[in-house]
Design a protein around this nucleic acid. Structure first.
Lengths: 188, 188
DNA sequence: TCTAGCGTACCGAACGATCGGTACAGTGTC
DNA sequence: GACACTGTACCGATCGTTCGGTACGCTAGA
């Protein structure tokens, strides 16, 4: 039998559960079913239980954000091209709008507090990287920062709306317009 | 005590619970505590249980959206002024960004399906009203519709971000810029 | 080389608490 | 008496968590 269930295989599965169901909506039985591991095995890997699972998922996400979103933005080359590279990764990560955001799923309800700091770190890293690209493209620091925050807001909002309506076109439009939103010459 | 807890007093309390905790995060015990009503009383008022509670909250929200958001937009007078009126109501309803959105809270997880249609109706009514104001202000139908959808996306996104970061400034900035976002002369 | 002992990985069963929901006997008001 | 409403007691199911135990590979001592 495929022994050796490692964290690197476990965490993506947990991520998937939490982002779709939210923290309160995921039961240990769900996790057991999704991973194929018995309950007690789960507590072997995560002695502090469900909250630890969510914490480690968030750590895993932080790494993913840096590798998939921030890194392309910090690469060399044309700012527009780098931004397009990032949007591709974003579209992929959210599966074209079909999958929700863990920032959303893990901050609903009273369970949010243990996670807030980790969430904030990921958000800040991503926004800062987008802002930095915008500065490089010629925008002022202040405008760049606002545009970057707006971009993240648009992504999160479109994910909520796409999920609520069961229709991905809101997300797709936001993704398509994201480079223009961040670097374009609007007077907003 | 001839207390007489009516739906009109019950539903705002339920709304408060669901928007803060999400559907899965709210237990009947929570509802009982928040309303002061025993379980049997709750099941007297809502024979179909928790799902009915959420459904009626959503109906209640639909009415609220029409009365508080759509109606001001459909009033007579300067489009900018009407829009400013709406943003005031929005800011109030979300308590300056401190309170979440039920569209978000009630569409997380598998519980979403019974509610999707109702959610879609509220969203459509609101977006259509905003788009109509934008058309009146001189924008083309297509651009107006996109701007209206973007406005809603920005509101939802800023609510998620404000909650995640425990900081309302994202929401406040979106609210402040909302008239410009909808009616302004950006080239986006 | 045998084997005792240890650590890692896993499991089903069961824990007490809480879940959503029901049964029923009231209570007060018309 | 009919009816709206409520408290108490209870149901089976599920919650997150813990229990006792198994299987297996590694290491060390004899």
């Amino acid at each position: 039998m495929g022994d050796f269930m490692e964290r690197t295989e476990l965490l993506p599965i947990l991520l998937e559960l939490f982002r779709q169901q939210g923290y309160a909506g995921v039961s240990i039985a769900d996790v057991s079913k999704a991973t194929g591991l018995g309950k007690s095995s789960l507590y072997h890997h995560f002695p502090e239980g469900k909250e630890q699972m969510a914490r480690e998922v968030l750590q895993h996400v932080e790494v993913g954000v840096r590798e998939s979103f921030v890194a392309p933005l910090k690469a060399v080359g044309d700012p527009h091209e780098r931004l397009r590279e990032m949007t591709k990764m974003v579209e992929d990560f959210y599966d074209g709008g079909r999958k929700g955001c863990i920032l959303d799923g893990l901050t609903l309800g009273a369970a949010s507090e243990p996670f807030r700091q980790m969430v904030a770190r990921s958000v800040e890293a991503w926004v800062a990287a987008m802002a930095s690209v915008a500065v490089e493209a010629g925008l002022s620091k202040k405008v760049a920062r606002e545009r970057a925050e707006d971009a993240l807001i648009a992504i999160e909002g479109s994910l909520v709306l796409s999920r609520a309506l069961g229709d991905q076109k809101a997300f797709k439009r936001v993704i398509k317009n994201l480079p223009q939103r961040l670097l374009g010459e609007t007077n907003l």
